[in-house]
Amino acid sequence: EAHAAIDTFTKYLDIDEDFATVLVEEGFSTLEELAYVPMKELLEIEGLDEPTVEALRERAKNALATIAQ
């Protein structure tokens, strides 16, 4: 499951495998979680700032909209 989540994140969020791995290690496994989890939870991840989190959430929401079509 972790590998599938990493693949999904790299494909749809335009991030590298290392960043995707950090997200999975922090407990995220779906685009929905990244799109809708409280921003505070993402900001608790070391190295993430508000602009990065906002961009990540926007990419996740856009990916979900694209997949739904």
Rank of each mutant, 00 (worst) to 15 (best):
residue 24 V to K: 04
residue 12 Y to T: 04
residue 32 E to P: 03
residue 58 E to M: 12
residue 14 D to E: 11
residue 16 D to H: 08
residue 21 T to D: 03
residue 61 K to V: 08
residue 26 E to A: 15
residue 65 A to Q: 10
residue 39 M to T: 11
residue 59 R to W: 06
residue 40 K to S: 13
residue 46 E to L: 15
residue 46 E to G: 10
residue 12 Y to G: 02
residue 65 A to I: 12
residue 49 D to V: 04
residue 5 A to V: 12
residue 24 V to P: 00
residue 33 E to T: 07
residue 16 D to Q: 07
residue 13 L to W: 01
residue 68 A to K: 11
residue 39 M to G: 05
residue 35 A to N: 03
residue 48 L to Q: 02
residue 22 V to G: 04
residue 6 I to R: 09
residue 8 T to V: 12
residue 65 A to L: 12
residue 8 T to E: 06
residue 56 L to Q: 00
residue 60 A to Y: 02
residue 43 L to G: 04
residue 46 E to H: 12
residue 58 E to R: 15
residue 7 D to H: 15
residue 57 R to Y: 03
residue 10 T to A: 06
residue 35 A to M: 09
residue 7 D to A: 14
residue 19 F to D: 03
residue 20 A to K: 01
residue 48 L to T: 05
residue 32 E to W: 15
residue 38 P to E: 11
residue 4 A to S: 12
residue 69 Q to W: 02
residue 46 E to K: 13
residue 9 F to L: 07
residue 36 Y to H: 11
residue 24 V to D: 01
residue 66 T to R: 11
residue 61 K to R: 13
residue 63 A to R: 04
residue 42 L to I: 07
residue 38 P to K: 07
residue 37 V to T: 13
residue 12 Y to N: 03
residue 62 N to F: 10
residue 54 E to I: 15
residue 66 T to P: 03
residue 66 T to E: 12
residue 45 I to Y: 03
residue 38 P to G: 09
residue 12 Y to C: 05
residue 3 H to E: 10
residue 51 P to K: 14
residue 23 L to E: 00
residue 7 D to I: 14
residue 56 L to C: 02
residue 45 I to F: 04
residue 5 A to S: 09
residue 17 E to F: 11
residue 69 Q to R: 09
residue 59 R to K: 12
residue 8 T to C: 08
residue 44 E to P: 05
residue 5 A to C: 05
residue 20 A to L: 02
residue 7 D to N: 13
residue 50 E to M: 13
residue 58 E to T: 13
residue 23 L to S: 00
residue 41 E to C: 14
residue 64 L to C: 02
residue 18 D to A: 14
residue 44 E to V: 12
residue 2 A to H: 13
residue 30 T to R: 08
residue 5 A to R: 07
residue 43 L to W: 05
residue 25 E to V: 11
residue 30 T to A: 05
residue 41 E to M: 13
residue 5 A to D: 03
residue 58 E to Q: 14
residue 39 M to N: 07
residue 40 K to W: 13
residue 13 L to A: 01
residue 9 F to P: 00
residue 47 G to D: 05
residue 49 D to H: 05
residue 62 N to A: 14
residue 2 A to T: 11
residue 51 P to H: 12
residue 41 E to G: 08
residue 57 R to G: 03
residue 52 T to K: 09
residue 19 F to L: 14
residue 34 L to T: 01
residue 10 T to V: 15
residue 61 K to F: 08
residue 5 A to N: 06
residue 66 T to Y: 12
residue 32 E to Y: 12
residue 29 S to E: 07
residue 8 T to W: 10
residue 7 D to F: 12
residue 16 D to S: 14
residue 7 D to L: 15
residue 22 V to W: 15
residue 61 K to I: 12
residue 62 N to M: 13
residue 41 E to V: 15
residue 17 E to S: 11
residue 66 T to N: 11
residue 69 Q to S: 11
residue 13 L to V: 02
residue 58 E to S: 08
